[in-house]
């Protein structure tokens, strides 16, 4: 099998070099999909694969598609992926332990089978001689493509437009959240707080939540505020830190200060 020898289309050595440099890179980047645990890394590597493909397109005498590939995939689609990864959780690294029985083996089998079959077919097929696009791209490639798109394929093109609009609407609807309750503004919040206070809630609910870090010796956000009796006020520490268990205990605060405040509180109690 040596199609190159007979073809009128002779691929340059430069293209060969380009291919043999980029193709392994693209495969490695694609394999990242299978083996990396960090979603962001995967997205970045796939973006790389897309760029590699864009270069291949250009080499294959399709500069218009090459540019479009960069714009659409690398610029729009992969960025959209990154946004969603950000929304869903950057650090939600996924364990690679398979949970479905036999799934991994089936996947490996299917993958190898696909590669063998596809490559086998492509290599074994009696392909025609390469013609090259010199003639088709006589008026530059974008013009040639445009002639087809706005000529032979104009109806499909219009349909694609409709599809895009529908997709945009669909995405809007899918991510739309119906407001089921009344919007809670500042006034409503204040009213609710006062009402809770009237019902016998603690005084804490009526005032502004105390800020953390007042008695801090270091990074303040994890140090709870203390109330008048020297007790830590839970709500002063950000929820995230509390859930992670990174909240500082009273013992980690300035002991003297705490004692002073506690003493004042005691005095107050005696006065009362």
């Amino acid at each position: 099998m040596n199609p190159v020898a007979q073809t009128g289309l002779v691929l340059s050595t430069g293209e060969g070099v380009l291919f043999w440099v980029l193709a392994p890179l693209a495969v490695i980047g694609a394999l990242w999909l299978l083996f990396s645990r960090r979603t962001v890394h995967i997205a970045a590597s796939i973006a790389g694969v897309m760029i590699a493909l864009a270069i291949f397109y250009t080499a294959l005498e399709a500069p218009f598609l090459g540019v479009a590939q960069v714009v659409v995939y690398t610029g729009a689609v992969m960025m959209l992926f990154l946004f969603v990864i950000m929304l869903v959780g950057v650090d939600s690294s996924e364990s690679l332990v398979e949970t479905l029985a036999g799934q991994r083996w089936i996947a490996v089998l299917g993958g190898i089978g696909l590669v063998v079959l596809v490559v086998g077919i492509v290599v074994g097929a009696k392909l025609p001689d390469g013609v090259g696009l010199a003639q088709a791209n006589a008026d530059t490639n974008p013009v040639g493509v445009a002639r087809l798109i706005f000529g032979e394929f104009v109806f499909s093109f219009e349909l694609t437009g409709a599809l895009l609009i529908t997709a945009a609407l669909g995405a809007l609807i899918l991510t739309h959240r119906q407001r089921l309750s009344k919007r809670i503004g500042q006034r409503e919040l204040a009213d609710a707080k006062l009402a809770a206070f009237g019902q016998g809630g603690s005084s804490e609910t009526i005032t502004v939540t105390p800020s953390p870090g007042v008695y801090a010796r270091h990074n303040s956000a994890d140090s709870p505020a203390l109330d008048a009796f020297g007790e830590p006020v839970q709500s002063s520490v950000p929820t995230v830190l509390r859930i992670r268990g990174q909240e500082a205990g009273v013992d980690q605060l300035d002991a003297d200060r705490v004692a002073t405040i506690a003493a004042r509180g005691d005095m107050k109690e005696i006065d009362g």
């Binding site: 495969v27 694609a30 089936i106």
Partner: peptide, 13 residues
């Protein structure tokens, strides 16, 4: 073909 197979296996795995 190789890239396609990798993509397919990704979906499975």
């Amino acid at each position: 073909g190789i890239l396609f197979s990798i993509g397919a296996v990704t979906v499975l795995v």
